[in-house]
């Protein structure tokens, strides 16, 4: 076991898969010599060369569309969208094409591509370098959406995503890149897509979350533990497909469910979890399913005071846990 930052784990995942599978290529803006604007692909170009680490023009639709075609003809493309905020020019290729090639061809063509993108606020990125985009993709049958929270999961889930026969949107909260560290095994391992994990066990309240918010929820759980509130934290890891069984088992145990995400609340992924719990665990509930999510602004504004007001914090989560526990 070695201790790695979140981004080191991603970089190792890419490198190890490229070593394992000669059909894998990486393509995106600045992914070559520079190694990506966050250095997620640092070192890949030196090891694998121009053919397999491709600096593309500044054209997101091309990055995804060419990946789709390359996958149809035998390659395993891993595309990087420099910031999730700039994935929208590729939306048609992702939704109309990648997500439904298998369905529309009745299983005679597949689309084994992975699209990585850094997302999330808290690094002064302002309106166009801090958005959460997961809800757009979670809505689409044919896509898988992965949002890891630890270096271990980041590497293991990335390897699974790359090997997966279907298109995977792999979202990396950029605030975690260097601030989150954890143990990563030296050898080969994968983490399966579509399985949540219970990161902390508790009996009074379930917090369902993913990505950076897992860390904030654990922090909040510590804060309220001294007050006798035992909080269970469920890290979804993959939001599509959603591991309903793990969520429901936890809520049936605690009777209370708080969903937390940085993405804004209205029509957000929390609504899906809340609906699931209401439909499948209604008889077990003794408090309202509650959502703590980003405010009704399109993304985090720039000025520090505005950004701070936007952000979810461990303290905000602790307040929400206390309120729910009081029922």
């Amino acid at each position: 076991m070695a201790v790695r930052t979140f981004i080191e784990a991603i970089r190792e995942g890419l490198r190890d898969e490229m070593r394992r599978d000669a059909a894998m290529i990486v393509l995106g803006e600045d992914v070559g010599k520079k190694g990506g604007v966050f250095f997620a692909t640092d070192g890949l170009w030196a090891e694998f060369g121009d053919d397999r680490v491709i600096d593309t023009p500044l054209t997101e639709s091309m990055i995804v569309g060419v990946s789709i075609g390359a996958a149809a003809n035998g390659l395993r493309p891993v595309a990087e969208i420099q910031f999730a905020d700039f994935i929208f020019p590729a939306m048609n290729q992702i939704i109309s094409e990648a997500a439904r090639i298998r369905y529309r061809s009745n299983g005679t063509f597949g689309c084994p591509i992975t699209i990585r993108a850094p997302f999330g606020a808290g690094v002064h990125g302002a309106l166009y370098h801090s958005q959460s985009v997961e809800a757009f993709f979670a809505h689409v049958p044919g896509l898988k959406v992965v949002i890891p929270s630890t270096p271990y999961d980041a590497k293991g889930l990335l390897r699974s995503a790359i090997r997966d026969p279907d298109p995977v949107i792999y979202l990396e909260h950029k605030k975690m890149y260097r601030s989150v560290r954890g143990e990563v095994p030296d050898g080969e391992y994968t983490v399966p897509l579509g399985r949540a994990t219970v990161t902390r066990e508790g009996s009074r309240v379930t917090v369902v979350t993913y990505g950076l918010m897992v860390h904030y929820a654990l922090d909040a759980a510590e804060r309220v533990a001294g007050e006798g509130i035992e909080t269970e934290v469920v890290d979804l890891r993959t939001i599509r497909p959603l591991d309903a069984a793990t969520v429901l088992a936890s809520v049936r145990k605690t009777g209370k469910c708080l969903v937390v995400h940085e993405d804004n609340r209205f029509g957000g992924f929390g609504a899906e979890v809340a609906a699931l719990v209401a439909e499948e665990a209604f008889d077990y509930l003794d408090g309202p399913v509650t959502r703590l999510a980003g405010p009704e602004s399109p993304a985090a504004p720039y000025a520090s005071v505005l950004e701070d007001a936007f952000l979810i914090t461990p303290e905000k989560i602790a307040v929400a846990i206390r309120t729910l526990a009081a029922y």
Binding site: A22, A23, R52, G74, R76, F109, G110
Partner: peptide, 12 residues
């Protein structure tokens, strides 16, 4: 049938 992927090793 999935894709027409060649077996691993058929890459660049």
């Amino acid at each position: 049938a999935g894709t027409l992927s060649p077996p691993p090793g058929g890459g660049p």
